[in-house]
Amino acid sequence: MNMMTHQQALEVLAAHRGERIVITTMGSVGIWPKLSDSPLDFHYMPSAMGEGSALGLGLALAQPQRGVIVVNGEGCMLMNLGNLVTIASTSANLFLIIIDNGLYEVTGGQPTAAAGHADFSGIAKAAGIERTYSFAELDDWKNRAAEALGGKGPVVITLKVEGRLGQKTPKPPRTMAEQIARLAAAIRS
């Protein structure tokens, strides 16, 4: 089986994001700006460890009509697994994408504790989130992305991708202050 790359996985997401807010974390911050420059893009960097999904939950609760997609890494998710339970206790219009490459990409490629055995969508399902998906092959993700990203959240989608070595911490295209002002204006419009 040929695993999809991180960029391939996000290209499919970009084609289906609609008018939703997209929050990226860690490795995805370096890829998403090549695919999108929407005012509804928010690169959560600098961040607090593992809080991207929590921030997305709050934004989704505040903006239920618009919806929010969080592109999280599995290393980030491991730091806040309880957030899956909190998400399940709400009706937040949140789509949580977990990019699972099995390693900490920007710290030198060390394996995570979950590498090779943890099923994040299974954990999400057990936490009480009814709609969960997991894709490891690009064609499968392409064919079912419209279904997985359709309707209302909460939804959790795990995308298993190739790990990349030699990555540095990415830099978002705008400062945090600029991003917040841009997002706030887009939400108001």
């Binding site: 709050g58 934004l59 609760l61 903006q63 309880g82």
Partner: peptide, 19 residues
């Protein structure tokens, strides 16, 4: 919420969303 750092993250998202 399940944990206090998480609670702060949720609050941050709510503030960003105008709440």
């Amino acid at each position: 919420a399940c944990r206090e750092g998480e609670a702060i993250g949720i609050a941050a998202g709510l503030i960003l969303g105008g709440k």
